[in-house]
Amino acid sequence: MKQNKAKKIILVLLAVICAAVLVYSLYQGLIIYIPQKQEQHRFSELQQIAEQENREEKDRTEPSQGDNGRPQNESSSTSAGEAGQQLHFDDIAKINSDFRGWLRIDDTIIDYPVVKSPESDPEYYLHRDFDKNYSFSGTPFIGAGADENSDAFVIYAHKMNNGSMFGTLDDYSHTDWAKQHADIEFDTPDEHRVYRVFAAVQTQVGGEDEFKYYEKTGKLSDKEYNAFVKELRDISVIDIDDCPANKKQILMLSTCSYHTENGRFVVAAYRI
């Protein structure tokens, strides 16, 4: 009798422990999942704001029809937002003056505003959203020592488990995929830009053979630039027979990588 009672108590305790673990796991999942959903929703709102501004710009600049049905001012018939055309971000910049451009890669979730904080706090947006509130996901930002007009610069973002931000950036570790998604768009308030991927690198921060790509930014001499491009190609994990023929601006996208402790994954592209 006592043994049966003891077994029942043990079973009840095990059930309670399992239930507590389940509740805790659900709680942990919710406190991560809900904020991430809210953060992605805010980025979607920013996308809609930018799209609305460009629709209005298109309507304002689209030529009117003449009496003969043909467009007047035909030279201005190309509207903003079409392929290769400058986009407008006045409304986005009004929300946050640290806005530097919009990063976009076709057929991926990467479609985000990019910011640049003062050099006194270059990682300000590591855990802040576009509205400067706390955010675990953060906002893609240009790193220290460079800006969007430098010879080379880095855009950093987290590798989120839900695939958001740069969560899928390491798809570029596969040559075929990289070739199919070779072009990266980065539209600044002043111009439409396209960059062509030519290398992807895995490295380890603090490792014996660390590739310190973040030190190769800013203004580079011709010698420094050529050595940097060569190093990128030599250690690239993908095989792409393409690189800048002369000195072209280099954009790097950087995120965490789990191939090793303190790992980083970097995609390098030159402006075309």
Rank of each mutant, 00 (worst) to 15 (best):
A6P: 00
R271W: 02
G163F: 04
A83R: 07
E119Y: 01
R60C: 13
F211S: 13
Q48L: 15
N96S: 11
I110V: 12
D67S: 15
E231F: 11
D90M: 01
W102Y: 15
T188P: 02
M1G: 12
K223I: 13
Y213D: 14
Q52C: 02
A182L: 09
I235K: 12
D131F: 14
K247G: 03
P113S: 02
E215R: 11
G206E: 10
A20F: 13
I235M: 09
S236A: 07
L87D: 12
Q85C: 05
N226Y: 05
D67R: 10
V114G: 06
S135W: 04
V23L: 09
S79W: 09
S236W: 04
F153D: 00
Q72A: 12
P140M: 04
K179F: 00
Y33C: 01
I142W: 01
I238V: 06
L169Q: 08
D91A: 14
L251D: 02
P113H: 04
I240A: 14
S76I: 09
K37R: 12
Y258G: 15
P122S: 10
S173A: 12
V237H: 12
S254A: 08
A227F: 00
Q40E: 08
L13H: 15
I34P: 03
K212C: 12
Y213A: 14
K8V: 06
E51R: 15
P118A: 07
T61I: 06
I10Q: 08
D90W: 00
S257P: 06
Q52D: 07
E148P: 00
I110F: 10
D239F: 11
V114M: 13
D129I: 05
P244Y: 04
S117F: 09
Y195T: 10
N262H: 15
Y134Q: 13
E215C: 07
D90L: 02
I250N: 13
R196I: 12
G207Y: 06
